[in-house]
């Protein structure tokens, strides 16, 4: 399976910035600082369970629900 990492990153950025584009760089910077560079992932990136777990944990701390599929 592929593309889930990008899907979760996009969801985190979408919810955290709530349409305020000036918040996008800072939100992405926070992800880079925890070891997940959004630029490294696209729809074809294989689903790495460790990265997905890390993102889901971050999303949960941010109060963001991630759909299981």
């Amino acid at each position: 399976m592929a593309g889930k990492i990008k899907m979760i990153i996009d969801r985190i950025v979408e919810v955290k910035t709530n349409g305020v584009t000036s918040l996008v760089p800072m939100t992405k910077a926070k992800l880079i600082l925890i070891g997940i560079n959004p630029l490294k992932y696209d729809e074809t990136t294989a689903d790495d369970p460790d990265i997905i777990d890390k993102l889901i944990k971050y999303a949960k701390e941010s109060g963001i629900e991630i759909a299981s599929k």
Partner: peptide, 13 residues
Amino acid sequence: EERIMEKIGALTN
């Protein structure tokens, strides 16, 4: 520091 800042960053903009 890293974990505290990560938590703060997750909770707020």
